[in-house]
């Protein structure tokens, strides 16, 4: 982060609904660097969409600040530099794909004379079959709608992209396309913020992921730290006995070239490089008099983390 300049800066963002009864966002602070691909994940109702809404100035924060490129999110300049893919592609069904794209080309205030060329280029990039370009949108399948949604983002080379659940309901070819676009943006140093349930694709392209739950950021992970081989181990200790101290756990992790994340709710969380180290870890813990009650293995990477957090929540 230090080598990159800030694109989005969120400070202590709070958003309440119903006169403060529901706190959708409960003090979010976050910095997203230029050119970073940033993922927002969390269960339904966690506040991801509300955060996205605030970033797009579609919702007004109750308190706190957001700065994008140094402007408030509702600034015209921010809108010129950014593009947005809504979760449900609810487009003007009566238009043809080409008409819809021309309309957005005009809305984006791009020069009229390049309109046809830009539109066709964008439609080609999302691999929408040219036979569908002049077809009415109401005849589009969900996959085609998503491609069209992506195509409208490409107009005018945005510097910042917001994607809301881009992968939901997408076929494997579509998911592949999305990945390609994301990588392309990454290459062009475009900042991307995406909301996703579809963790597989997120983890492959995101630089960092924020886990949002109950309107708070629970954890921010740098995905470069998570390799495919790595596993996450959660060790539940007996609540009656004394908890092991952090130094001890960190030392054990270090001997296995792993990483210790800390303790939450009698659960120790470790990350190990290889699955075979699991037994060694448990053995070491038991040897140090840790009252191990149960051991979970999160299956893999991000999805594991997400599920673990979610399970923890349920357990609570």
């Amino acid at each position: 982060m230090s080598e990159k300049t800030t694109c989005i800066k969120i400070e202590n963002l709070v958003k309440t609904y119903g006169r403060g009864r529901t706190r959708a966002l409960d003090g979010i602070s976050l910095e997203i660097g230029n050119g970073e691909v940033f993922g927002l994940i969390g269960p339904n109702g966690a506040g991801k969409t509300t955060l996205m809404g605030c970033l797009l100035s579609l919702l007004r924060p109750t308190s706190g600040d957001i700065h994008i490129f140094g402007y408030t999110p509702d600034n015209l300049r921010v809108k010129e530099l950014s593009a947005f893919l809504p979760e449900r592609p609810n487009f003007d069904a009566w238009m043809t794909a080409r008409q819809f794209m021309s309309y957005h080309h005009m809305l984006a205030k791009l020069p009229h004379k390049t309109s046809k060329q830009d539109v066709e280029e964008a439609l080609r990039q999302v691999e929408l079959d040219p036979s569908a370009w002049d077809r009415r949108i109401k005849k589009f399948s969900r996959g085609m709608l998503q491609r069209l949604g992506l195509a409208q983002m490409l107009l005018g080379d945005p510097k910042l992209c917001f994607l809301d659940e881009p992968g939901s309901g997408m076929d494997p070819i579509g998911a592949n396309l999305l990945r390609k676009l994301l990588l392309n943006w990454k290459k062009k140093n475009v900042t991307v913020v995406l909301n996703s349930h579809h963790l597989d694709e997120v983890e492959r392209v995101c630089d960092r992921v924020a886990f949002i739950k109950g309107g708070r950021i629970h954890q921010i992970e740098e995905l470069s730290n998570i390799s495919k081989e790595e596993i996450t181990i959660i060790v539940k200790c007996s609540p009656e006995l004394e908890m092991p101290d952090d130094v001890l756990c960190s030392d054990i992790a270090a001997t296995l070239e792993g990483h210790y994340f800390g303790i939450t709710e009698h659960c120790l969380r470790f990350r190990l490089k290889h699955e075979k180290d699991k037994a060694s870890l448990v053995k070491a813990l038991v040897e140090k008099q840790v009252a191990v009650e149960e051991v979970f293995q999160e299956r893999r990477g991000l999805e594991d983390l997400f599920i673990a957090l979610h399970n923890e929540d349920l357990r609570r």
């Binding site: 300049t5 800030t6 694109c7 230029n34 050119g35 100035s57 490129f69 140094g70 402007y71 408030t72 509702d74 600034n75 015209l76 300049r77 809108k79 530099l81 510097k159 062009k188 140093n189």
Partner: peptide, 26 residues
């Protein structure tokens, strides 16, 4: 093309154009 760091962007804009870039909701 390429990177458009915050500072660069801000400078580009603040000198001549900042006034014309108002809020869209104001």
């Amino acid at each position: 093309e390429g990177s458009a760091p915050e500072t660069e962007l801000q400078e580009n804009v603040s000198a001549s154009q900042k006034k014309s870039y108002g809020s869209t909701t104001a």
